[in-house]
Lab assay of single mutants.
Amino acid sequence: MSGNGNAAATAEENSPKMRVIRVGTRKSQLARIQTDSVVATLKASYPGLQFEIIAMSTTGDKILDTALSKIGEKSLFTKELEHALEKNEVDLVVHSLKDLPTVLPPGFTIGAICKRENPHDAVVFHPKFVGKTLETLPEKSVVGTSSLRRAAQLQRKFPHLEFRSIRGNLNTRLRKLDEQQEFSAIILATAGLQRMGWHNRVGQILHPEECMYAVGQGALGVEVRAKDQDILDLVGVLHDPETLLRCIAERAFLRHLEGGCSVPVAVHTAMKDGQLYLTGGVWSLDGSDSIQETMQATIHVPAQHEDGPEDDPQLVGITARNIPRGPQLAAQNLGISLANLLLSKGAKNILDVARQLNDAH
């Protein structure tokens, strides 16, 4: 009898209710805020589980004197976190989706994509230029951005401005803007500013005609071990179906173009009346040469937790077992079709030249 009692006690200790789920994140304040929001949602869904947040620095956090596009290494903000995932030191990792490459290392998958916040870019102005827009900034004003995508589009749109690289986390960039006289304004992701509670610093939100956004911008991705079915089931509740389908289309477009950090590629997606609209573009580094096109596809946005595919093969690095396969494939095909259209119009040449120029500098 006593033996059975011990077995029952052991089973209770090993039951999922007692389990601590370890969540990996970057150390920056924004990353911690984003991770806290994901953990809060998981806690609400699984009140019996405990969650421990483990923060670590990544290569991208450490190399702050070089433009991201020049470092010449993929997975700048993800490699150390993936290493911890691989060694079973954490069970899942919360990322900004735009930091996750469209091809993940073997053994990993994006197990959830959370509801997207505003994906557009924002302009934050130096205190002396508050009330201005990019259009009304004085001639030769210097605007800071760490992104080739932003610089290429904005140089084309605002030729009277000069664009220079600015690195560091959000706090560091804002301090550089406010305390030094080098920059009249800087460009940042609206979602990051909003998550930090800095709505009052948003001086201008850039519309798609001015600057399309990065693939996955404004959404959070939760990376897990691809074979860890328990954790895949656990994080599945975080999937937002519309965000998922938009981001599958965007990531398929980028992957098929073979774009990345070192080339200016941008997108804009919208879901309306059962249609998914995808606009994508590529630019030369100075913005003088560009190709942009829009395509659409009829896609039914499923309700969360309709029964999805059981075999769960990944699409552009994403596993969404609780979302039907048909809409996911339709979104992926839309991204591939748009990429093929741009490639047929000469996108590869623009991107190759951009890559060579970026590598040469």
Rank of each mutant, 00 (worst) to 15 (best):
F51G: 09
E179F: 07
T145V: 10
A84I: 06
V38L: 08
G346N: 08
R246C: 05
A249D: 03
K74Y: 07
F125K: 02
G216F: 05
N349D: 12
Y46S: 09
Q332H: 15
P264V: 00
L134F: 07
K62D: 15
G107R: 09
R255K: 06
L92C: 12
G144A: 11
R175K: 13
I71Y: 11
A44C: 05
K70R: 08
H305I: 14
Y213Q: 06
K345N: 12
D273E: 11
K176M: 12
A112P: 05
G197A: 04
H300P: 10
E52K: 05
E310Q: 15
L170T: 07
V222R: 01
W283Q: 11
H305A: 01
Q50S: 03
E117T: 06
T133H: 07
D178N: 09
P47D: 09
I110E: 04
V39P: 02
M196W: 05
A297F: 00
E86F: 09
E139G: 10
T319I: 09
Q217Y: 03
Q314G: 01
E306I: 12
T133R: 13
G218Q: 01
E82R: 08
K87N: 12
I318N: 07
A219S: 09
L276D: 03
D240Y: 14
I299N: 06
K115T: 12
E162V: 14
V353T: 15
E182K: 06
P264S: 15
R321P: 07
I54A: 07
T102C: 03
K43H: 09
R355M: 15
E117C: 13
A320I: 01
F253M: 14
R173S: 01
D61T: 02
V301D: 12
L234V: 14
K176R: 11
A360G: 14
V90I: 11
F253C: 01
V124C: 08
R255P: 03
I205P: 01
G144F: 00
D311C: 01
L285N: 15
A320W: 14
R255L: 00
I291R: 15
K74Q: 15
I205A: 08
V93A: 11
R201F: 05
H199P: 15
H160G: 11
A40G: 12
K79G: 12
D65H: 09
A112M: 02
T133M: 13
E293N: 09
P138M: 12
G308C: 11
V202W: 05
K79V: 06
G236M: 02
E210C: 15
P309N: 15
A112K: 00
L92W: 02
L137T: 04
V316Q: 01
P327N: 02
E209L: 05
E223A: 03
S284A: 15
L161E: 01
D307N: 14
D240V: 12
Y46P: 00
W283R: 07
D65C: 06
G259Y: 05
E82Q: 06
P264E: 05
M196K: 05
L254S: 07
Q217M: 01
H95K: 02
D289A: 13
G308V: 13
S57Y: 11
G218Y: 02
A226M: 15
W283P: 08
V39N: 08
G346R: 10
H268G: 02
Q304S: 14
T319C: 12
D311L: 04
P324A: 07
R355T: 05
K43I: 13
R149K: 03
P208A: 06
S146T: 08
Q304M: 06
L315S: 14
V103I: 08
L244M: 08
A320Q: 03
Y46V: 14
A112I: 00
G197F: 07
R164W: 12
V235P: 01
L134M: 10
L329D: 10
G216Q: 00
Q180H: 11
